[in-house]
Simulated scan of single mutants.
Amino acid sequence: MKLIGLLDSPFVRRSFITARTLGIPFEHQTLSVFRNFDEFHAINPLVKAPTLVFDDGELMVDSSQIIAWLEHIAGPGKSLWPTDPSAYRRCLQLVSLGLAAAEKSVHRVYEMKVRAAEYRDPDWLQRVEGQIADTYALLEGHLGDSEWLCGDRVTQADITVAVAWRFTHFSAPGLLADSEHPRLAALSAAAEALPAFIAADYS
């Protein structure tokens, strides 16, 4: 099984970290959807990261679907989702907010680094940055004082939210201050110290 994409994508990185945390063996191939378009296209005509290539050559895209499959094959007792209904609902809610923050941060990257400067829309950029800030404000308000978000161990919520927070800081330095989001900053520091996150580091 092979995971294709760059780790500076929050969607590739959450898939990579999930597989590592669940103890699922896989190969990682670092291809850019921009710089390696032709090579990526030869593997997956959609040129979408992450792409998961199964041993039989079949493909899967979308990080949430890839993670659902990884959960399915991980075996009993290894799930990164809580079994308690209220904790599961909270975990899903936080994952959804983390994905929204990551998605809007990617929109900002496309606007600032892909679109030519003369075609950028300042109103759209202001809107996206406002959505990013508001999403993280919602997340900060939902976080408590415990180390992890949905109990006493790492869950998919911790992975997704921490990955999104790191990506936003990496792609938009100065947009958000740790001092205004102390719980998110603490979660990020704890998560980034985990072996699976260290294995998925990027700069």
Rank of each mutant, 00 (worst) to 15 (best):
residue 47 V to P: 01
residue 114 V to I: 07
residue 66 I to G: 05
residue 125 L to I: 08
residue 71 E to K: 06
residue 22 L to S: 13
residue 168 T to H: 10
residue 198 I to S: 08
residue 124 W to S: 01
residue 54 F to E: 06
residue 150 C to A: 12
residue 137 A to L: 08
residue 33 V to S: 13
residue 144 G to K: 13
residue 103 E to G: 10
residue 78 K to G: 06
residue 94 L to E: 03
residue 169 H to T: 07
residue 182 P to L: 08
residue 201 D to P: 02
residue 196 A to E: 02
residue 65 Q to F: 12
residue 1 M to W: 11
residue 39 E to Y: 14
residue 3 L to I: 14
residue 31 L to Q: 00
residue 144 G to L: 15
residue 137 A to N: 05
residue 197 F to T: 01
residue 33 V to A: 05
residue 44 N to K: 14
residue 100 A to S: 10
residue 81 W to K: 08
residue 144 G to H: 15
residue 32 S to Y: 13
residue 71 E to L: 12
residue 10 P to C: 02
residue 68 A to Q: 05
residue 176 L to Q: 00
residue 1 M to Y: 09
residue 51 T to A: 08
residue 187 L to R: 05
residue 11 F to A: 06
residue 169 H to W: 15
residue 79 S to C: 09
residue 119 Y to A: 03
residue 5 G to I: 07
residue 156 Q to M: 15
residue 80 L to R: 03
residue 125 L to P: 00
residue 33 V to K: 06
residue 1 M to L: 02
residue 110 Y to V: 12
residue 89 R to E: 11
residue 94 L to P: 01
residue 166 R to Y: 05
residue 151 G to L: 02
residue 25 P to T: 04
residue 95 V to I: 13
residue 9 S to H: 04
residue 3 L to D: 09
residue 8 D to Y: 06
residue 138 L to F: 10
residue 26 F to K: 02
residue 134 D to I: 00
residue 184 L to P: 03
residue 81 W to V: 08
residue 203 S to L: 02
residue 109 V to G: 07
residue 84 D to Q: 09
residue 3 L to K: 11
residue 198 I to Q: 02
residue 107 H to Q: 13
residue 175 L to T: 10
residue 57 G to W: 14
residue 131 Q to D: 11
residue 76 P to G: 14
residue 58 E to P: 11
residue 62 D to Y: 07
residue 49 A to D: 03
residue 103 E to N: 03
residue 174 G to W: 02
residue 6 L to S: 04
residue 167 F to G: 02
residue 78 K to R: 07
residue 14 R to V: 00
residue 30 T to D: 10
residue 43 I to K: 09
residue 103 E to L: 11
residue 119 Y to V: 05
residue 83 T to H: 12
residue 55 D to P: 00
residue 162 A to D: 00
residue 142 H to M: 11
residue 38 D to S: 10
residue 96 S to I: 11
residue 184 L to G: 05
residue 169 H to I: 04
residue 102 A to L: 11
residue 13 R to H: 01
residue 190 A to P: 01
residue 150 C to L: 12
residue 126 Q to K: 14
residue 118 E to S: 03
residue 183 R to I: 10
residue 70 L to I: 00
residue 192 E to A: 05
residue 195 P to S: 04
residue 183 R to G: 03
residue 128 V to T: 09
residue 116 A to V: 15
residue 134 D to T: 11
residue 152 D to H: 13
residue 29 Q to C: 01
residue 164 A to E: 07
residue 50 P to N: 06
residue 140 E to K: 04
residue 44 N to F: 15
residue 7 L to V: 06
residue 69 W to Q: 03
residue 188 S to Y: 15
residue 62 D to N: 06
residue 182 P to Q: 09
residue 78 K to T: 07
residue 121 D to R: 08
residue 71 E to G: 12
residue 174 G to Q: 08
residue 39 E to Q: 11
residue 32 S to T: 07
residue 169 H to M: 04
residue 199 A to T: 12
residue 167 F to S: 05
residue 49 A to V: 12
residue 129 E to S: 04
residue 180 E to G: 01
residue 119 Y to L: 04
residue 148 W to D: 04
residue 171 S to T: 08
residue 98 G to I: 12
residue 144 G to A: 12
